[in-house]
Each structure stands twice: as structure tokens, then as C-alpha cells.
Design a protein around this nucleic acid. Sequence first.
DNA 1: TTTCCTTTTGAAACCCGTTTCAAGATGTTT
DNA 2: AAACATCTTGAAACGGGTTTCAAAAGGAAA
Lengths: 323, 323
Amino acid sequence: MASIREVAKLANVSPSTVSRVINGTANVDEEKKRRVLKAIDESGFTPNEVARSLFKKSSKTIGVIVPSITNPFFTEMSSAIEKTANEYGYRMTICNTSGNVEKEKNAISMLTSMNVDGIVITTSNQELKKILENCETPIVAIDRVISKNTAGGYIHCDNYEGGRIAAQHLIQNGCKSIVCVRGLESISSARERYQGYLDVCTEQGIREQSIRCDYSFTEGLTMTEKLLEEFPDVDGIIACNDMVAISIYKVLCRRGIRVPEDIQLVGYDNISLAHLMTPELTTVAQPIEKMGVKAVKMLIRKETKGYKEYIFSPELIIRETTK
Amino acid sequence: MASIREVAKLANVSPSTVSRVINGTANVDEEKKRRVLKAIDESGFTPNEVARSLFKKSSKTIGVIVPSITNPFFTEMSSAIEKTANEYGYRMTICNTSGNVEKEKNAISMLTSMNVDGIVITTSNQELKKILENCETPIVAIDRVISKNTAGGYIHCDNYEGGRIAAQHLIQNGCKSIVCVRGLESISSARERYQGYLDVCTEQGIREQSIRCDYSFTEGLTMTEKLLEEFPDVDGIIACNDMVAISIYKVLCRRGIRVPEDIQLVGYDNISLAHLMTPELTTVAQPIEKMGVKAVKMLIRKETKGYKEYIFSPELIIRETTK
DNA sequence: TTTCCTTTTGAAACCCGTTTCAAGATGTTT
DNA sequence: AAACATCTTGAAACGGGTTTCAAAAGGAAA
């Protein structure tokens, strides 16, 4: 691979001049510029990004740390991040952690030592609080809060309101026995959604019924079985996310339970699959793309000094799994 | 951020010694080693990966270039790649190209100038042939071939056989009017699958019927409408992938057409959603994970000198959308 | 023609971890 | 005690762009 010094030799100028031609950082004599461009072309030179970022302390990269790269919520978010990053001349690199603290720590130190210009992270581990506070790289937490007022940004959608919306919708639709398939207690967004559901229940004098479930569809499957056993009179289910809603639907269907006639079902997130599945899934939409876009903008504009919170509003999308 | 020279000063040794302690590349006096470790701990030093990879010409990273990061086939593949890469002490960075040649070229030059240790690419653009041939970084094409015998590896699943399997299954199940929703002509894997379908049709004296469709579910939706208009007597559909199969199912369902009673449907890929959807999707499985794992192994073991082809076998997974 | 200002240019330092090389230290053999 | 082998260690060079700084060159004003 040709280096800038070889190009310089070919064009009979100094490396500095070549650098100036490449980056347009200073005026260069037209004749020399032509020679340099010719030399670059002939040698097939491409500037070495590593050397560049070593000096610049910037790699024009946004790092994304997520608990799963197969979960559509995160891929749709990452997709938006990547697209936006590209628009601003940045790349994206994804790290998958499976929610594992060690992997998260690794990912952070890896990304910072790669000179990424910003990190978007979705995590629930309180342990990371100190690390993130001492991290010089701009960081925004997305979807899940690590700790309010920790340095960095926090982008989320009003989960409490989302939980309320879902519960209210089912009650309005005549449900008397609503079960909330709540996410893990450790996940802030899941706790908030549950709280929204709970408050509506107490306000309306409806019994609280819930069951815990992580965000995977395998667990969605087994938890639905358990749910039906524990709450045989259930007529409305709020799922912790759309993937789980899909698996709940599968089990109900298998059991011959009709949706929405016997049980009404509402998901959460509005991933594109919610619209694509049959029947189409009623769900509480989060503006997934907008959240990703906002995260990138905050990072690039360096709006993460101190603590910056940005809250989006959820929206109920009524489709076919509720009346 | 502390540098190795600061650590050296703190520990009262030379930077070389610090480097040797970090990497265990040479014996270091126990007492000095202790001082160095103490200094590292106190200063919170982490080696700068950029400087490291500048010298080493390796970033311990595998680059992945895919046409979409929301398509489950690619995310499941990337997930396997990431997991395997991690096991070998490598990271993964994903580039999304939307099938755009310019973005693909950019991604390649970006990744090589980042000193990635290997590239996994899924592309159909013949234009890249020369670039890939001249690329010093090990490359493996996955799923789609760029050109046989081009330098690098090529990992795929026998698509011709997959097309045959799907067609044979439908014929055995009594289908008389089978429509192949074939993928884009530009995509080698799609061409091969179609060829498999076609050959079975001629062998069995069945009429060839097909319609083109890209791998997005939006097009899947509109193409199904067109399909039903053009082939009103259709009783079997082979989809170019599972996502399209899901959208085909949606349209059929909407029209009141029963699956599998009126029309039998077989997908392709066996993404995890195929199992999760209701009804469960009969599909031709590709060993997505194994393909990803193999790609990483080939790259890390530097088995890509010359041309290395590795073919997996497809497998019919009979579920609920066929009789 | 001299002086001053502006522009262009290359040498060298810089970013920071790694490695080579040779010197210094320690130990062993004869 | 001399000669030799082995280990430990730091100085310096390296990788490849970028930037600073000062010199050189060109142009304009006096």
C-alpha cells in the first residue's frame, strides 16, 4: 500500500504538500497539485485512516453498543444511526454485548481507544455509571437510563406514558382482566412501562396482574404458557415488546384462543414486523428512527457535556390484535 | 488519557518496559513489573488501539459489508460472525451499503485503511471484481458470488439444490400451478434458486411461472397482488426469502385465501422468524450461523489466498404453510 | 532598489505503542 | 580471573498522516 511519502517522491514534492492537496488545508501551486493528483492516481494511494486518526484523535466513527444485534428494535435503531452518521461523514461500528457487563466494559474501552467520536449505548448496568462519568468520549444512553444526571445524553421515549396508553386502550376496549407481560426489573424502560400500566389499573379499579419476561421470543413462548395457567380469565395482554407479542400470539393461536375476540393483545415498539405480521399488531409506537437520528446529532454537535435529556412521545397504533 | 510514556515515568522505567509488561513479550524484573502495574492502575491507562494497529498493521477487527442491516438474514449472519470473531479475540464492524456500488467501494477502502484483518462481503456488483482482486486484505464473499476464481473465499449454500428442493416439495404435495417469486436477476443466489426450480419444472412437465421481486417486504406485498392477478390458478408459491414469504402470506390472508389449503407457500433462509410466525413457515433452510462462523475462520486462518470455495447444503424444513 | 507583506513550501516534530539493537548486568564455565 | 553466554533494559527508529514553524520566493509599496 502506497504511503504519502511515496506519493511525495513520485510527484517530487514533500509529504506535507501531498497532505495539503488531499485535505485542501492550504493553497498549493496548481502545477504541483496536478503532479500530486497524478501520483496518487498512479500509485492507487488511499490515506491510511489509522495513521490519520492517531494524530487527529478522531476516527470519524460512531460506536454503538447494544444488547443484541438480532433484535429488530436495535437493528432498526442502528440502521437509522448508520444512515445519519453517514450523512455527516461518519461511520458506525456496532458492538454486541448480550447485556453482559464485562462485554459492555470491553466495548467502551475498545471504542474509546479506537478514538470513536461518540458512543450510543443501551444498557441497564449501574456498574457502568462511574466508567461513563469518567469517559472523555461523548456518550448518549438510548432507550434505557443508566443514571439520571450522569454526564452524557439520554434519549428515550416516555415509557410511563406508553404503559398508560396501552392499559387505557385495553380498558376502553372492554378488557376486565389485563395481564402485563413486563420486561426485566433491571431495565428502566420496562419498569416505567409497568408503572404506567399499574397506575391506570389502580385509577380504574382493575386488578394488577403481571408476569416477568425478558425480551427474547423463546422466553415469550414459555411465559405465555405460564400466563394462561396463572390467569385463565385473561382477556387483554400487554407485551413488553413486539417480538414477545408475536410469540404470545403464536401460543394463543396454537391454543385456539382467538385474537382479538377472546384476548386482545398490544405490543410495544412498533418495529416494522408489527405491521407486516398477520394479523397486524396493535402496538405502542416508539419513534425508533427519530431516536437514532437524535442520538447521532447530539453526539456530533457535542451536546452531551453535562446532562442532556431528550424525551419522545409514544403513540398508540391500533391495528388488528385489539378490537 | 494517559499514554505509555506517562506510565513509564510514573513507574520509573522506559516505555519499552511498560509495553513488555502489557503484552508479556519479554521477561521483566518482578519488582519493575509490579511498579508498572501499579502505575497503570493509578493512571487508568488503556493502550491506544489506534497507535497499536498503526504499527501492527492489524486492528483485530473483521469488517462486514452487507446490503442491509435490518434484514434478519444478514443480522443473524452478522451475529454469528461477531460471536465467532470475539471468540478469536477479534471485533466486528458492520457497513451497510443498501446494495449501492459507491457505498460498497467506500466501505472496502475504509475497512482496508482501518487495517481490518478480514472482510466478509455480500454483494452482486461485478464492478468490485477488480478492486477485490487487488485488495491485500483477506476477503470472503458470502451468499452471493462476485466472480468464481476471483482471489478470496466464497461461502455459500447450494442455491440450485435449494430451488429444486422447494419445487419438488410443492409438486409432491400436489401443486399443479407453482409460481416462483424469484429474486433480482443480478443476485447470483437468486438466479441459481430459480434455475433449480426451473429444471424441476421441465423435468416434471410443469409450467414455469415466475415474477421478479427484490428482498424487501414492501415489494413482496405489491408483487403478490400482481402475482394473483397474473396467475389466478396458482396453488403453490416459492418465495425468494422468508421476509417476502411473510409478506406474501399477509396478502393471501387478506384476500381470504387459505394457506396451505388453497395455496402452499415455501420460504427461503429459515430465519428465526420463520419458526416464530403463525402459521410457522415451511422453508428451505440455509445454515446461516455456520456460514458466518466459517467465514470468520477462513479469514483468521488466512485460507483465502487463491480461491477457496465452501458450499453448504440446504435443508427443507416442513412446517405449516405446506401440506 | 529597498522594505515589507503575503504566499508557498519542506523539514521536523507529533500522535503513541512496538520492536530492534546494542549496552549493561548477571551468571556460568574453564 | 578471564572468557563467554544469557538475560534485562532503555534509546531510538518505526508506522503514516498532520501540523507547526521558519525559510524561501514572489509581489507590492515606498
